[in-house]
């Protein structure tokens, strides 16, 4: 098992700098479908599935190892190493915005040049003096909603996860099952995502960062984006006039434009 098969890595495009797109909770690399191709003419475009999601090697999901986001960050760096990428921009959505932050902190100096955080939140739960947007009971409700939607999953979905994408019938099923994953893994990842707290990691980040904030996002609301902007000196905050937690799906063109502007403004060494 290599990092490339483990994380179902796909590479397109050409360029000196690689954009590594990391999907968020609940989905896989197909989330970037409306955004990533726009960069293929100037950048190497690297897409991956977090272990446990999409076409990753689900068997590699060891709950003990993935009990912290750092494990996913280490996976991302393993992919960067495996592809021998010399210059990297990490683009992370939702929980993977924090995975990208952790990866940038842990990466060897000079490799990760920039970060693009799409709908990021360093902590989803409210805390003393901090509004994350959610209480613990809300997260329990989410887990219940996930359970309710996974009834009958195991029997129907197991063969797909075992991996027979070459069979058309199963491929169709795979399309239908888009953004579904093993319920036990999904539950675990939901807990790691929504109960985690990465505020303490922010001062350790010294990489130029763009925060892409959806104007109306219940999961990562504007005050959270502003909090991040304050905590990351020198970061850029761009509020996209869109609704929901996935601006790269609901407003792909403005998302592309904002990333382009941010990267274009980068001093080329």
């Amino acid at each position: 098992m290599t990092a490339l098969t483990r994380n179902n890595v796909s590479v397109t495009g050409t360029g000196e700098v690689a954009l590594v797109f990391i999907h968020g909770f609940g989905c896989d690399q197909r989330m970037w479908r409306l955004v990533a191709p726009a960069f293929e003419d100037r950048y190497r475009v690297v897409l991956l599935d977090l272990v446990g999601a999409g076409g990753s090697e689900v068997g590699a999901y060891d709950p003990a190892r993935y009990a912290a986001l750092q494990a996913h960050a280490d996976d991302v760096l393993a992919v960067v190493r495996a592809l021998a990428l010399p210059r990297v921009v990490l683009v992370g959505h939702s929980v993977s915005a924090m995975i990208a932050v952790l990866a940038a902190i842990a990466a060897p100096a000079g490799i990760v040049e920039r970060l693009v955080l799409v709908a990021p939140s360093p902590r989803y739960l409210n805390d003393a003096g901090y509004v994350g947007g959610f209480e613990r009971v809300d997260i329990e409700e989410l887990l219940e909603a996930m359970d309710a939607n996974y009834l009958g999953w195991s029997g129907a979905m197991a063969p797909v996860i075992m991996g027979h994408p070459e069979q058309p019938a199963l491929a169709q099923e795979l399309t239908d099952s888009f953004c579904r994953t093993d319920p036990a893994i999904a539950r675990h990842f939901a807990r790691v995502t929504f109960l985690g707290d990465n505020r303490g990691d922010l001062p350790r980040l010294h990489t130029p960062t763009l925060i892409l904030q959806s104007a109306h996002d219940v999961i990562a609301p504007l005050p959270v984006g502003q909090y991040l902007h304050r905590q990351l000196p020198g970061s850029e905050l761009v509020v996209l006039d869109t609704s929901g937690h996935c601006p790269h799906l609901s407003a792909p063109a403005p998302t592309i434009a904002a990333i382009d502007h941010f990267l274009g403004a980068a001093p080329r060494p």
Binding site: S94, E141, L249
Partner: peptide, 25 residues
């Protein structure tokens, strides 16, 4: 609220990418 979280992370992206969702509980 839990359902809303689920909708935003599962349903909303599916709708935009696939054009439909079915039998969400």
């Amino acid at each position: 609220v839990g359902g809303r979280l689920h909708y935003e992370t599962h349903c909303a992206p599916l709708l935009l990418l696939q054009g439909q969702v079915r039998e969400m509980s």
